[in-house]
Every structure is written in C-alpha cells, then in structure tokens.
Design a protein around this nucleic acid. Structure first.
Length: 874
RNA sequence: GCCCGAGUGGCGGAAUGGUAGACGCUUUCGACUUAAAAUCGAAUUUCCGAAAGGGAGUGCGGGUUCGAGUCCCGCCUCGGGCACCA
C-alpha cells in the first residue's frame, strides 16, 4: 500500500498514510478489556480560535502522539482523545464584531483545527471528540453544577467584581492582569453585581493535602500550595469600648505577640465601620472610604510598596490579654476578603504595622526578644520591626517563654476565657462562577418568589420529578423582591441557549440573554422544566411565574471535567458509564502548558472531588501525573505574537519539509519542558536525517528496497547490531522519561553507522523503523511497507515494540580513562572485568603515561572498572 | 520583597560525582561534478606550538572530594509564580 514515489516525497507520502489511517479508523480506541493494561494520554484540549494551530499546539500534540503510538506498540489499550474547549470570549467577541452566530464560528474553527491536526499526523481517536458547546456535552456540565447546587456548594452574592467598560462585561480576577483586562488590555473598575459563587473553600484542606497523592512537577505543587495559602493561627475577640457593639474578631498567626498590640485595623469595607465611627471622625472616614474604593488593584499593589494610609474611627477596643484600651483604625492594607477583615496590629513585630505606626505616631512595644545576634543592633538593642523567632518579654505571665510555646499557651488561655480559638485560614477564595455573557452554559435554575418556590416543589414532588434541591434554598434579591433559585429537573437537561440576534453586551452588566424577554420571563412547570413566554396565557395552574438566570457559566466549567467525558463521550444516560470510569480511570499522563498550573487544575480537582464524594468517580484525584511542555519562543527569543511578527506557521513547514520533519524537529530542539527559541535553520538537520533513512532503505531511481538490505539475519555487522540494541533500549527509556531529544540523537547515531555498513539484515531495518515510527510515523509506515514489514504486521504501528537483547549489549572490552591527579592522560582498552593490578600494569606501560609517572611517588590508586583509573602521585 | 527554575562553544543543546561539548546547526577545507545543488570525507571551545604535545575552560567567589557542569556555602544575571494574606 506504499506510494510509488522514488525519492522522499513527503507531500505525497504524508497525505497518503493520513487518508489510510483515517479510512481504516486505525486509531479507534479499543474496547474495554480488563485483561489488558490501559494507557490514557490526555492533552490540554484546545480553544478553537480562528487563528488555527500554532507551533505550541504542535509541540504539545507531538509529545503525546509519540507516547500514544509507543504505548500501543507496547501492547497497551490506549485512549488518546481530543476535543474542543469552545465556549468563551474570543468567539463571542468575533460574533459581536461580525454579527455571525458564535456556533457557526465555532463549527468553522473546529473544522480548521481538525483538518490541521490530521495534517500533523496525530493519532487521535476523532470518533471521541467532545465539544463543550454541544448540548449533549454541556447537559452534563449543567448536571454536575446541579449536584454542586444540591450540596450547598453554589450560592449567590452581590460581589464587587471587576467590571470592564470597554468589553462591557465582568471579568474574573484571573482575567485582570496588572489592573487591565487580560483580553484587550482595557482598564477595569470595581462594581457590585449579583454573581454565582462556588464554595471551593470548603475543599481547601483536601485540595492541599491530596497534592501528596499526585506526581506533578514540584513547582506546580508549590504554586497550588501557595494559592491555597494555608496558615495556622488564632481568632481573638477584642471587646469594643462601646459594649453595645460587641466584639471585634481578628485573625492572627502571632497570638504570642498579643501584649504588643498598640492599635487595631479594620478594612474599609468592614461591616462595623459605620458603627465604630464617632461623629467627630465621620467626615474623615467617609473621605477615606471613598478614596480606598476608587483605587484599582494596580494602584493598591503599587502603594503596597510605598506609604501606608488610614484613618482613625474614633473608637477603642480592649486587649483581652491585658485590658489595655487601644484605638481602632481603618486602613486599606487590611483586606476584607481574608481572615476576618480586621487585625490586631503589633508594630514591633510586623513590618506593615510598623510602617503604619511610624506614619501615624502610634507607640511601638517590643514583646519578643531575639535569641540570636542577627536581630540586634550594634549596641545590643533589638532592630525593630523584628519578625524572627525569640522569647517573650513584657508579657505578664508569659515572659521568658519561647514564641512557639507562647502561641499555644496564650491561645489556649484566651480560649478558656471565651476570648478566642485556634483556627486555620486560607488565602483561597470562593470561586466567582458567573459571566455576563451569551456564549456559555446557561445555569439550570429559574428564579421564583417564595410562595411559588413552595408550590413548585410540592407540585414537582407530586408529579414524581426529583428536583436537586439544596437543604437551604438559595435566594437573592431582584428588583426589591426576594427570589428563590429553583433547579430544573435533571431529566429536562440540557437547558440550551436561546437564539439571539445581537451578541452585543447590554452594557448594564447583564448578559445579552437578559434582553430576550420571551426566554427570560416565563410560565414555568417545575416538574418538567417546560416553559412558555410570560406574555402568553398561563398554560395551567401548576405553571409559576419564573425568571431565568441570565448569567452564564465561565469557560472553566466545560474544561473542568472533559477528561471524564472522553471515557464515554456518547452516553446520554450518564456523564460516563461506571465500567468506563473504572477501566480507564484518570489519565496516565496529562500534558499541557504551565499557564494552567493553578486555576484550571485546581478547579478540575475541586469538581472531581465533589464527584468522588457523590460516588460518581472512583478516584480522589483526576490527574495523577502532569507534564508541562515549554513554550516555543520566536526566533528573536521573545514570545511569538502577531504584533512582533515572529510567528512561525506550522502549515508552511509542513509544505516545505513535511510534518514528520516538523514533529521530529520540535522534539529535537531541546528538553521538552524547557522554554526554547524556534530556529528555522536547524530544521534542515532533521530533514536530512529522514532523507538519509530513506536513502538507506530505498534504491535511487527504482524505488525498490535498497540492495544492502538482505534476509540473512546475521548480515548485520556485530558492532552495528550491538548499536541497534543499545538504540532500541535508549529510545524506549527516553520515550518513557520524556527525553525525546536524546532519543532522536541516538537514532541519528545509529543511522550514521548503518550508512557505513555494507549489509544489514531486513529484520534489523524493520526494528529501526519501529522505533522511528512514533516520531516520524508517515515515513516509517511507508518504508515498513516497502521493506516487507507486512510479513510481520500490516502497519508499523501494529507491530510489537522490538525487544532489545541484553546479551547484545554486553561488551568484551571496555575503555578505561587513565588520569594522574584527576587529569586525563591516556585511554586503555581493557577486557571487561580487568582487575586493578591489570589496569595499573597496563597504564604504567602506556607510553603517554611514562613521562608523567617518572620519578613520582604513587600515593593512591582509584579504580572504577570500565570507567576510570586515577593515579594520585606526589 | 517572598517562593521556584535556569546560566555549558558562533547557535540549539549532551553529559548515573568519573574522557566536558554527544547529536544537530553554522562556518571552512577536500572528494564527486563542465559547474552548481545534493551527497560523501575532514576540521570547527580557547591559548601556546610548525608539529608532537601542553595549559586554561561549564555566570562569579569560596568549599567538600582522588576527581565537581553535577554536591555544599555566599553572590550576580535571566526566566516563571506570588505579592499589604495579618
């Protein structure tokens, strides 16, 4: 089935094999077979943008394709799927600009991606494609969300969120970089809006602890740890001087310094601000709050390096440790979102508190004495602020204690008096989970009033429909009226998007969906999910007036669980069948960029754990092994970008050199995890290598097998046979260790030696083609067919991976380097297992060594058999 | 500021504590050719030397070791992440 070209015509060969693979469904995932080991290779699925595939995609997919082809040859049942993360802003923005439907644009972009992926020869099972915008897919996204909702993990809150006037939408924290939008770099401001929020903080402890269960790059684990940001400390209650106001609760990691508290600080948004502000301070406080609210995150960050600002409330609190009266200030260096939004300030032992105290003339009381000299000035006094460890001073009843011990004791003593308790705090915040956009999954709930909520749930129950109701109803206030979130019945999913004529943001902060009155305001049947526009007559008495949720889910929603859908992508009864979940489990390796190290992987882990708790998935962690490929930079060493004009296009390279060359070169550039610049010159090198393989296999002019390839199994010279087995071993080891660059160089070394041999056994050529096949599958397939591989297997990919013969790897002689005082002087060829005295005798007789040893005393001999003989002389 | 990672020829890079620079690119010379391309062969860290040979050399400064690119300590530079988190 080979082509009939006589030279290496990749333009003919590559499409030829791609068509054969496609027509024969060569990469269809094998059926579940518990007797066979499985291997699941997962790529970070792409966002199908209009720009098509870039080199970064090619790198990512070449890495996984090589693994998938290798594991198939090793006899594993391989699942190697692909899909489309197709909801999201760029498509919607394009739709706004062109007036085309985002679905239409998505379908077009997906077609481009699919064609390009086939053109790079990646062995995906395209029959398992998933598309997050397909209702048959997002039905299950909505289903999972309903489970979260039912568990009380979803709630609604009026939140100050990032509002981007230019985009006309709300952005998540991660979409705001340095105070401007990530997309388009527009300025952003704070604006309170009604939002869905997911209670990821309820899983903080498990998300942190279970990092122990996964084999991830250390840096990624540390990034997640830092993001979760666990800190141990205590919540302490400071009574307010105006006892009618109760207590001020603070979080501190340093309860040992409680005797050094000289003021309190609360965040400008703290709920007690108004109550604590005395009439004399009212004006100053109002001005300060206004000023703080106007600051963008960028300004706050910049100011973090500069001066502290703040204003006194006029009120006092009482230190529970010593009864002292201390002023309560407002300052924006305390943030409402962390801890309790209030702190006890200990200027002597905290840099921020110190800076604040200096600026506002607040006393500084030292309560920790350093154990070591580093904390002291020249004349023996402590350098303040001192944040290191030490012993307590000026702390009645605790002075002299070590700080660790004092933390425990003070916390316990205050707890005994009901003035505090040990707690753990996390930096992780709940997950803002709604967008005011059209192109996303609709939330499968409707808003109804209290009476209708009661009536609707009763009706649904009577009608036999199980609604995923949370224990406590989720409510919010819309236009002055309290509304209840009523989930749609699971059986009515998917809740699809209505058609709209304009994708333009409403500009009010609401999604374009809000403008589709017929969809939004409805008569609604809670038992079936059926709805008719509210403008029509009420169909029946059990229909209630409902308003749909007009927010949509963020892009993360679909990407949080796609790796599960691949296991059983066409199942309409469940997100995946239990047998599929049990057999395939999670991906054996997940390859993707480090840019998703924190958010995507954290969110997916959260959903996975919820599904684990529900018994839907059998494992506590979704991604046991993770690998980040390095970014391919432009020739200039800068990130590839259109504006820089340094983008290399894969299509051009496929046309000029072929995809085998492109793949091989991408893998040869350097370590897969390293960030590396694209260098178009080097591509000739690997292309030459492939041409050389062709020339060694195919006779020029005729296209027949090369005459030096013979059937005599012993035709291959012994040293070439040995090299082949070394190469087979190295390539296998390097693929498993993801060190493809050295695997390729080993194959180059083999081919260089093969070229010098006069004869080679056919079986050895075929073995070589097999190890080349994962990297350059088209060429390997073509040559396999021409050299007679069909006698072994119809396709090179279907032949069992060649075993290397350990007996062939054993040498009879070994090179030993002779050194004097660690300097190389000569090389010896010694029989394997030569003793130290033999080696030394041979060395002493070596002409290169004689002058170095003459007249010197040998002090010591270090002999590492097969490696080195070091003669230490004096 | 804090936490990671990385610094090796003209370039990309290789090297279980054991010959630094594999493999590839680049450049030069040679063979083949009327010529060119392609291909093949040789050279390609640097200094001294005609050569044989010798010295230096993996960001900088120390250390451990018979032996350090690799391990330890202190710096410098670049890249990534976090950043008023109490």
């Amino acid at each position: 089935m080979a082509t009939n070209c006589t030279d290496y015509d990749f333009l003919q060969i590559e499409p030829h094999w791609q068509k054969l693979w496609s027509d024969s469904a060569a990469f269809r995932t094998p059926a579940i077979d518990p007797s066979k080991p499985k291997y699941y290779v997962l790529d970070m699925f792409p966002y199908p943008s209009g720009a098509g595939l870039h080199l970064g995609h090619c790198e990512n997919y070449a890495i996984t394709d090589i693994l998938a082809r290798y594991q198939r040859a090793k006899g594993k049942n391989v699942l190697y799927p692909i899909g489309w993360d197709a909801f999201g802003l760029p498509t919607e923005n394009y739709a706004v600009k062109t007036g085309r439907h985002p679905r239409e644009v998505t379908i077009e972009n997906v077609a481009t991606f699919r064609r390009q992926l086939k053109a790079i020869g990646v062995s995906y099972d395209f029959e398992r494609e998933v598309d997050t915008t397909d209702p048959r897919y997002f039905r299950w996204t909505q289903w999972i969300w309903l489970q979260l909702f039912k568990k009380g993990l979803a709630y609604v809150e009026e939140k100050p969120v990032w509002w981007c006037p230019a985009l006309g939408t709300v952005l998540a924290n991660e979409e705001v970089i340095d105070g401007v939008s990530e997309v388009g770099k527009h300025p952003v401001e704070r604006r309170p809006l009604r939002q869905w929020v997911l209670r990821i903080t309820a899983y903080a402890e498990r998300l942190l602890n279970d990092l122990k269960l996964v084999d991830w790059p250390d840096s990624t684990k540390r990034m997640q740890e830092a993001w979760i940001g666990r800190s141990e400390g205590a919540e302490l209650l400071f009574a307010l001087e105006n006892s009618a106001l109760g207590d001020l609760k603070v979080f501190t990691t340093r309860p040992d310094t409680v005797f050094g508290v000289t003021f309190m600080v609360i965040a400008p948004e703290h709920p007690l601000v108004d109550a604590l502000t005395t009439p004399a301070q009212r004006e100053a406080v109002a001005a300060y709050r206004k000023q703080a609210a106007a600051k963008s995150d960028l300004e706050r960050t910049d100011l973090a390096k500069g001066e502290k600002t703040g204003v006194w409330t006029g009120s006092f609190a009482i230190n529970p440790a010593n009864g002292q009266k201390i002023p309560v200030w407002i300052a924006d260096y305390v943030i409402m979102g962390y801890g309790t939004g209030a702190i006890m300030a200990v200027p002597a032992h905290d840099e921020r508190d110190y800076a604040f105290a200096q600026k506002f003339g607040i006393p500084v009381i030292q309560v920790i004495e350093p154990d070591h000299a580093e904390g002291r000035n020249g004349h023996g006094t402590t350098k303040l602020p001192f944040v290191g460890d030490g012993r307590l001073v000026h702390s009645d009843g605790y002075s002299g204690l070590g700080w660790e011990e004092a933390k425990k004791k003070i916390t316990a003593d205050l707890a005994a008096r009901g003035r505090g308790q040990a707690t753990i705090n996390y930096k992780l915040r709940d997950w803002l989970f709604s967008r005011q956009r059209y192109w996303g999954e609709p939330f499968p709930i409707v808003w109804v009033n209290e009476a209708d909520y009661a009536a609707a749930t009763v009706h649904a129950k009577a009608a036999g429909a199980a609604l995923p109701l949370p224990a406590a109803p989720v409510t919010c206030v819309i236009e002055g009226e309290t509304r209840y979130a009523l989930p749609v019945p699971e059986a009515s999913l998917p809740l699809t998007l209505p058609e709209v004529t304009s994708y333009q943001p409403t500009g009010t902060g609401e999604s374009p969906l809000a403008a589709i009155t017929d969809w939004v305001d409805v008569w609604y049947d809670a038992a079936t999910g059926h709805a008719v526009p509210a403008a029509q007559a009420r169909p029946a008495a059990h229909y209630v007036r409902a308003r749909r949720e007009t927010n949509t889910m963020p892009q993360w929603a679909g990407s949080c669980w796609y790796y599960l859908r691949y296991l059983d992508p066409k199942n309409d009864a469940a997100l995946a069948a239990p047998e599929a979940l049990r057999y395939w489990g999670g991906p054996d390796i997940y390859v993707g960029g480090a840019e998703h190290a924190v958010l995507h992987r954290l969110y997916a882990r959260f959903w996975h754990k919820v599904l684990f708790d529900l018994g839907v998935v059998p494992t506590p962690e979704p991604f046991t092994k993770l690998f980040h490929q390095g970014i391919i930079l432009g020739e200039d060493g800068e990130k590839m970008s259109k504006s820089r004009g340094n983008v290399a296009n894969p299509d051009d390279i496929i046309r000029s050199h072929g995809t085998d060359t492109l793949r091989l070169y991408l893998m040869f550039l350097g370590p897969l995890e390293a960030m590396k610049p694209w260098n178009p010159n080097g591509i000739e090198g690997v292309h030459r290598f492939l041409q050389k393989v062709w020339r060694e296999c195919v006779e020029r002019d005729t296209g027949a097998p090369h005459p030096k390839i013979v059937d005599d199994a012993s035709a291959t010279p012994a040293d070439l046979a040995k090299l082949l087995h070394e190469t087979i071993k190295k390539v296998g080891d390097d693929i498993e260790g993801l060190r493809y660059n050295t695997a390729i160089s080993a194959m180059m070394i083999f081919v260089n030696a093969w070229q010098k041999a006069e004869r080679i056994a056919r079986r050895d050529v075929l073995s070589f083609l097999q190890i080349l096949a994962p990297f350059a599958p088209h060429l390997a397939e073509e040559l396999w067919a021409r050299i007679g591989g069909a006698a072994l297997a119809p396709s090179v990919g279907l032949a069992a991976w060649p075993a290397y013969d350990p007996a062939k790897l054993v040498a009879t002689e070994q090179k030993v380097v002779v050194q004097t005082n660690g300097k190389k002087r000569a090389e010896l060829l010694l029989p394997v297992g030569a003793s130290e005295s033999d080696a030394l005798a041979a060395a002493q007789a070596h002409p290169d060594l004689v002058p170095h040893l003459a007249g010197k005393v040998t002090k010591r001999i270090i002999y590492v058999p097969g490696k080195i003989l070091n003669i230490v002389i004096g």
